[in-house]
């Protein structure tokens, strides 16, 4: 069986975030390097049809961090929130020399603790962002990490990812959508039979699935990926959560619904529902006990595909002298 490959999160930092950081750094943080809570959002993955070739092009698996990340006032439509730990360094040397492994591990520990102790899914998408703001040059160095537990042996998919419409039926999907709209949550359980479907928080796993045959169960998540055969990053920690808490069910195979429909498709529109479905199982081989913390991965790569910091150079958009040059 092929190994499930997850599409990693890509950070998308809106310029407004850097503006907010600049203000925060000057007015509030000053020389403080304390970690702060931040909120980012993601939505279902989107693909766009290339009008020249007719192919579907998947847009990035984005985690968007915007100007109100520090104040966390409102969520955009169809978006779910992910909370993170933000740390700004005062000098580029501090930024380079920071003990990144320790910071990463502390976030991974937080996630693992939320799984095993609190049995909560609230922190599954927790991320880490380190920054250094060169305010005079309008340059911002940043490095995101999206810790995800690596399963050994890896998760495998039974067959391949199929359109959810073929497995659950369009009626079930149509029934799920309004429920997600009313109570948007990144992870949810689905009970589907005969065109009916109900959803519930993952925390209600035991009571919600009591007496439900495995064939009518599904575990769903808002999937930020739009690549047909790669579910998005959030699924990794969801699977780790289920394996840690319900090892017997996980061993039998988990029916996973990758939710990718923010809109009900037009009837008769080509493509129809975009959500994907697959049965995921852990591969054969020696594995650690479900209660033991697996190792975690998830530093974001930079634009050369190496593990390294990224930089946002906003001088062209912020530097008054540069702006004057191109003004007419």
């Amino acid at each position: 069986m092929p190994i499930v490959q997850f599409a990693p999160f890509q950070s998308l930092v809106q310029p407004a975030f850097w503006h907010a950081l600049t203000d925060l750094k000057i007015d509030v943080l000053r020389l403080s390097e304390d970690a702060l809570p931040v909120t980012a959002t993601y939505t279902t993955g989107r693909a766009v049809k290339d009008r020249e070739t007719g192919n579907d092009i998947a847009l990035g698996c984005n985690l968007t961090i915007s100007g109100d990340a520090f104040s966390n006032t409102h969520l955009p439509q169809h978006a779910v929130a992910a909370t993170g730990s933000f740390k700004n360094f005062n000098t580029i040397e501090d930024f380079k020399n920071a003990d990144k492994t320790a910071l990463f591990n502390s976030v991974a520990d937080e996630i693992w603790k939320s799984i095993t102790v609190d049995k909560s899914t609230a922190l599954l998408n927790r991320f880490l962002v380190l920054t250094f703001a060169d305010l005079k040059k309008y340059k911002y160095f940043y490095w995101f990490a999206f810790p995800a537990f690596a399963s050994k042996p890896a998760w495998e998919i039974d067959g391949e990812w199929a359109p959810a419409e073929d497995i659950l039926g369009a009626d079930s999907l149509a029934a799920i959508r309004p429920q997600l709209r009313v109570s948007p949550r990144p992870f949810f359980l689905v009970r589907a039979s005969g065109g009916q479907a109900t959803t519930a928080p993952v925390e209600d796993y035991v009571s919600f699935f009591a007496g439900v045959p495995p064939a009518e169960r599904a575990i769903g998540f808002i999937d930020p990926s739009a690549v047909p055969n790669n579910p998005g990053w959030p699924l990794r920690n969801l699977l780790a959560y289920l394996r840690a808490l319900y090892p017997e069910d996980a061993a039998q195979g988990l029916r996973v619904l990758c939710w990718r429909d923010s809109e009900t498709p037009q009837t008769g529109a080509p493509g129809g529902w975009k959500s994907r479905f697959g049965v995921v199982k852990q591969g054969a081989g020696e594995s650690i006990a479900p209660t033991e913390k697996p190792s975690a991965v998830g530093w974001e790569k930079n634009i050369q595909g190496k593990l390294g910091a990224r930089v946002a150079d906003l001088a062209p958009m912020m530097d008054p002298t540069r702006l004057a040059d191109q003004a007419v």
Partner: peptide, 10 residues
């Protein structure tokens, strides 16, 4: 990490 999909850019 074999379970990480190739970079979408590629």
């Amino acid at each position: 990490d074999e379970a990480t999909a190739a970079a979408p850019k590629a």
